[in-house]
Design a binder for these strands. Structure first.
Length: 579
RNA sequence: CGGGACGUGGCUCAGCCUGGUAGAGCGCUUGGUUUGGGACCAAGAUGUCGCAGGUUCAAAUCCUGUCGUCCCGACCA
């Protein structure tokens, strides 16, 4: 490929609407252009890198025994109604109407479609295990698209779905995908690691997300440095808070005291009251699937909303408004408590940390008053004790006791044991060996392909631009004749090398532009080709060409060895990425 | 959805406060000189200042609305 025949519009300056490095580089290196918020056109270099990632994914899916299909992006709403997600996923569903007014859905994912297929095509245990996958464009009505391809309205995803006749079979299918994912990200040159993930409404214990550590990620991961524990913060647990919870009773009964103007934990902790946060009971009012619930946490803890929803099996949860708090409890946020005045219909959930907590301080359900000497088990009608708190850095790992750390990460993949949630609702059943009809046991497995592309850039770049791993580089080799005069000796050698590389199966881009050397050097580093082959009149006179790895020092090699040295360099770096 | 910021040539931005001829750098075109790290000189082209109203003799500038973009938030009462 000649540079002049491609389309690589590089930019010296970053467009103003890009914030993070990978987003800026996507634009600066001419990989993508924005059409609208969350919608991007892939230009040749971006498309080539994307195809490389897709290629790796296809190879590994096939190796793992999955089989490729392609499902419609446009889907009838009735299958979404059948699965119940027409309601529960309504926030992300794009809906469109056709010319006669009938409604359609743009698929954010394909569980419904594949389960519909399985319902009609799989009828016997003999047809399983079976794993289908596709690489498809997905649509999500993101509240706030951001960071380029990272969170977009339209994006490319690899999704796979496994069907098994038994739980054990489903676990084996899950493990195959888990292993495939590990290989895929390694081959993409990404340092991605699996973490335990929240299973949300669906329940079950088997879900892992593959995370790429990055300060710009949108997820927090809690992990142990050496014990291997790693979990999404939404799921993470610990041995408990570092500070112990007060457990000595300070009085025989709760006692009301005035706290005018005090509405926050910090204000109650400050003079004149001086009640340290660990001695306070934080009372939150939530509305979960239209039901009011009270959530009790220690004052210095934070509610983990994902845990709340998971424990309740709720699909939507939101904090109650101050007016709702007033009408249910008789007080405004800041003076709420669960000791008295809680209507019987309101469920009270308390975090495990508060078990046996004594001598606590909490709101009195009367504006301007709090209660002290509260023994939680004695004084509060707790309906359920649950793990609802968000773990904090420094707390002991449940695995080894070492202090947990927390870091930001980008989620690039998710493997999930679904069970029979969809197969039951959509009647995807089979006849088992024992003659019984049972629902298929399913798993689903996603990789954000476009997001993975950007994650690679986020992880592989420097001040000069992108630095692609050879496996996903749009071209591995950039041949740079410093003088591209037609018919001249540098261009002739460049062309010869290009053709010889092509014959050896390596696609190189030849920078045949009539540009000054500095421009070519800067561009090749910005776009990030792993190996640049420089051919100038000086080096030619010395009988040499220059091999300049993107991340290493320049090597001068004799012209007649150039091809072999380039091939060796590429093979070596390809091999390094193969697990 | 709440808060904030910003919309001026292809890109990055100045001008707006204090209304009065629309600017710079990069990019682009032409000619010349250059040619191993984003060249230099000269001459040029490119704008209904996001859009719609309003105020005014006069609006990029002030006011209102609207659309778009980006950031923060949408757990800690």
């Amino acid at each position: 490929m000649r540079w002049s025949q491609s389309f690589i519009p590089t930019l010296k300056e970053s467009p103003a609407d890009a914030e993070i490095a990978s987003h800026k580089l996507l634009l600066r290196a001419g990989l993508v252009r924005k059409l609208s918020g969350g919608l991007y056109t892939f230009l040749p270099m971006g498309l080539r890198a994307l195809r490389k990632i897709e290629g790796i994914i296809r190879e590994e899916m096939d190796r793992a025994g999955a089989t490729e299909v392609l499902m419609p992006a446009l889907q009838p709403p009735d299958i979404w109604q059948q699965s119940g997600r027409y309601e529960s996923a309504r926030d992300v569903l794009f809906k469109v109407k056709d010319s006669v007014g009938r409604e359609w859905v743009l698929g954010p994912t394909h569980e419904e479609v594949i389960t519909h297929l399985a319902a009609s095509e799989i009828s016997s245990y003999r047809q399983m295990p079976r794993t289908f996958y596709q690489v498809q464009t997905k649509f999500r009505d993101e509240i706030r698209p951001r960071f380029g391809l990272m969170r977009a309205k339209e994006f490319i995803m690899k999704d796979a779905y496994s069907f098994d006749a038994s739980d054990a079979g489903a676990m084996a299918s899950y493990q195959k995908m888990y292993d495939a994912y590990t290989r895929i990200f390694a081959r993409c040159g990404l340092k991605a690691f699996p973490v335990e993930a929240d299973t949300g409404v669906i329940g079950g214990s088997h879900s892992h997300e593959f995370m790429v550590p990055a300060a710009t990620g949108e997820n927090d991961v809690a992990y142990g440095e050496s014990d291997g524990y790693a979990a999404n913060i939404e799921k993470a647990t610990s041995a408990g808070p570092v500070l112990p919870t007060p457990s000595a009773s300070t009085g025989p009964a709760p006692e009301k005291f005035p706290t005018p103007g005090v509405v926050t934990i910090d204000e109650l902790a400050a003079p004149p009251h001086g009640v340290e946060p660990a001695r306070q009971v934080k009372t939150l009012v939530y509305v979960a699937d239209s039901q009011p619930v009270l959530v009790l946490l220690r004052g210095d803890d934070t509610l983990n909303e994902a845990k709340l929803m998971a424990r309740l099996g709720a699909t939507h949860a939101r904090p109650a408004t101050p007016d709702e708090c007033s009408s249910w409890l008789g007080a405004r946020p800041g003076s709420l408590g669960a000791v008295s005045g809680v209507p019987a219909k309101v469920v009270i959930l308390a975090d495990e940390t508060l078990r046996r907590a004594m001598g606590m301080v909490t709101g009195a359900n009367e504006d301007g008053f709090h209660l002290r000497h509260v023994d939680v088990e004695r004084d509060i009608r707790v309906s359920r004790w649950l793990d609802l708190r968000t773990v904090k850095a420094g707390e002991a790992s449940i695995r080894s006791g070492e202090p947990l750390r927390i870091r930001r990460a980008i989620e690039v993949g998710h493997v999930f044991k679904l069970g029979t949630k969809y197969s039951e609702k959509m009647n995807a059943t089979f006849l088992a060996e024992d003659g019984q009809r049972r629902p298929c046991v399913m798993g689903c497995y996603g990789i954000g392909v476009t997001r993975t592309l950007q994650a690679v850039i986020e992880q592989c770049h420097d001040d000069n631009g992108i630095s692609w791993p050879v496996s996903v580089a749009p071209f591995v080799v950039c041949i740079t004749p410093l003088n591209a005069a037609p018919g001249g000796p540098t261009l002739s050698l460049a062309e010869r090398l290009h053709d010889e590389l092509a014959a050896a199966g390596i696609e190189a881009i030849l920078d045949d532009r009539d540009e000054r050397p500095g421009v070519k050097f800067k561009d090749s580093e910005l776009v990030g080709f792993p190996l640049r082959v420089g051919i100038g009149e000086k080096s030619l006179a010395a009988g040499e060409v220059e091999l300049k790895p993107r991340n290493g020092p320049m090597l001068k090699v004799p012209i007649d060895q150039a091809l072999d040295r380039i091939l060796a360099w590429v093979r070596e770096h390809e091999a390094a990425l193969n697990p």
